[in-house]
Amino acid sequence: MSRTKVFVPDVAEAGPELWSNAIRAGDMLFISGQVARPFEGGTQLVGKDEYEQTRQIFSRIDRIIRAAGGTMDNLVKMTIYLVDIRNNTEVWRARREFFTGDFPASTLVEVRSLAKPEVLVEIEAVAYLGGS
């Protein structure tokens, strides 16, 4: 099975030798945990609450999947890390803007903290890009 890094021209990655935004292995696409960074990169975040950050994260994931030849409908599994589980409804509110029909399988985990204090949400995902 081939394993290749997905080049996403409009979503910046972390520095060299840290991680890849996405790796395609056969028909599977594995998307690293995404936080609400701007598409062009940098250390600032887009959004000051869970809803705004989740919208930015799903926009990043959408761009990554499209670069690999798929759509959000190809997502089959997500793991969502949330600093304050009491705000999960804000994550679900943003999620409904990106998905219709059957949502991907999903796990929600409350964590003590993420990479920086202002990061409230991180989402990793897996997509199936093969035929039906």
Rank of each mutant, 00 (worst) to 15 (best):
V8R: 08
K5V: 15
S20C: 04
E13L: 06
E13K: 07
K48M: 14
N87H: 09
R60F: 09
L18K: 14
A12H: 13
N21D: 14
E40C: 08
P16A: 12
T54K: 05
I23Q: 04
E50I: 01
K48C: 11
L120F: 04
L29Y: 03
M72L: 15
F99I: 04
K116C: 02
Q53S: 05
E118T: 08
T89I: 05
G101A: 06
V35Y: 02
E110N: 06
N74V: 05
T43N: 15
I31T: 07
I57F: 13
Q53K: 01
L82N: 12
E17K: 14
A125R: 01
N74S: 11
W92A: 10
E118Q: 09
Y128V: 01
R86V: 04
V126L: 12
A105W: 14
V46H: 09
V76C: 13
R93I: 00
Q44T: 12
K5R: 11
V121T: 06
F7N: 15
N21W: 09
A25S: 10
M1F: 12
R3Y: 06
I31E: 14
I65H: 02
R37W: 10
R95D: 00
R63E: 13
M72E: 00
P104A: 09
A22F: 02
L29R: 08
S132C: 04
Y81C: 06
F103W: 11
Q34E: 10
R60H: 12
L29N: 07
A14V: 02
A94G: 03
A94C: 03
R63D: 10
P9F: 10
E50C: 07
I80R: 01
R37E: 14
L29K: 08
Q34N: 08
A68R: 09
V6H: 03
G47R: 12
V46G: 10
A94H: 06
V11S: 14
G69T: 00
S106P: 00
Y128A: 04
Q34H: 07
E110H: 02
V109D: 00
V91F: 10
W19N: 13
P104L: 09
A68E: 01
D27F: 07
